[in-house]
């Protein structure tokens, strides 16, 4: 029963998305929706570590880009299928999560944050100097001409991203409804106390960094096909780090729904703003909304809603 509910939701979401692609044919919507969904995955993944345990990861871009570049290697060497790339991207980024967690999670929270920032720089430099994947020159990923069942490759990518978004949301949901989630919450509230009560804090944290990293890597894997030209500066863009942190903050970090709400709202607002206003104002909006939210609605939108419900007499 527990496993069936999220599984059914994932299948339903993918089916629905597929049906949609047979009806809507304007490619722009798929491009825009892909970006928003990508942020749903990144925000959810970030929240598994940041929201549940309180460890702030500044290196979202590193995990995302690692997934993307794993895909480039597979693509160039074996012409691998997209789903293989996604799984491999997730695996490699997950391993990185485990490694960096192992190195730094025994430290205080801020050190972990700084370590993730440094990690992004080191990784970016490595990729820049690795000519096999294009180095600083970048790499052109030519999409396959056709894909079974779909008229258009971008529509296919959109459905893949729907799958990944649904998957990461179910992972977050499952964590919350398990002993792992309660353990992580204990870490966030008071790590020392949790440790004393016999919560295996380091192991739980490692599990969280691995899962979080893997999901970010999976989000990055289809990126070369989506953008068709990938280079380090854009794959490691700080905007990924900012957004994946801002979205859960705006939605609310306490539950799986928060990052979803935040990503959909902020992501959509950004897409609309980019088309209608300018990309600079777009960033300004993110900044102002972010600051306003952490000051005025510290528990995010969901927290606001909940507080209002509680205030109302039953």
């Amino acid at each position: 029963m527990r496993v069936l509910r999220p599984l059914a939701a994932v299948v339903a979401a993918v089916l629905l998305a597929y049906l949609l692609t047979t009806v809507v044919h304007n490619r722009y919507y798929y491009f825009a929706a892909y970006v928003v969904l990508q942020y749903v995955v990144l925000a959810t993944a970030w929240n598994i570590l940041g929201g549940y345990t309180g460890y702030v990861n500044f290196g979202t871009a590193a995990f995302f880009a690692l997934g993307a570049y794993t895909a480039v290697v597979l693509l160039k060497t074996w012409k691998a299928a997209l789903l293989v790339m996604v799984v491999a991207g997730g695996a490699v980024a997950g391993l990185l999560g485990l490694g960096i967690g192992y190195l730094t999670l025994r430290l205080k929270g801020v050190y972990f944050s700084i370590a993730t920032l440094a990690l992004a720089v080191v990784l970016q430099t490595l990729i820049m100097n690795w000519d096999y994947v294009g180095g600083a020159t970048g790499y052109y990923a030519i999409r396959p001409r056709t894909v079974p069942l779909f008229d258009d490759y971008v529509a296919f990518l959109f459905v893949v991203m729907v799958l990944l978004a649904a998957l990461s949301l179910s992972v977050a949901w499952a964590i919350e409804h398990s002993r792992l989630g309660r353990g992580l919450a204990a870490i966030r509230d008071n790590e020392e106390a949790a440790e004393c009560l016999g919560v295996p804090t380091l192991r739980l944290k490692l599990l969280a960094t691995t899962l979080s990293g893997a999901l970010m890597g999976m989000a990055g894997a289809p990126f070369p096909y989506f953008i068709t030209y990938i280079e380090p500066a854009s794959a490691f863009n700080l905007d990924y780090a900012v957004n994946s942190l801002a979205m859960p903050m705006i939605g609310g970090t306490a539950s799986w729904l928060g990052p979803l709400v935040g990503a959909v709202l902020l992501g959509t607002a950004q897409q609309v703003a980019t088309v209608t206003i300018s990309s600079e104002l777009n960033l300004l909006i993110v900044g102002v909304v972010l600051v306003a939210f952490v000051i005025l609605a510290p528990e995010g939108l969901l927290g606001l809603v909940r507080r209002r419900q509680q205030r109302r007499p039953a």
Binding site: S113, G287, V288, V294, I295
Partner: peptide, 13 residues
């Protein structure tokens, strides 16, 4: 956490 985000937002603004 929130302080961190506050400064991140400030940086952007």
């Amino acid at each position: 956490l929130r302080g961190l985000v506050f400064f991140f937002g400030l940086l952007f603004i």
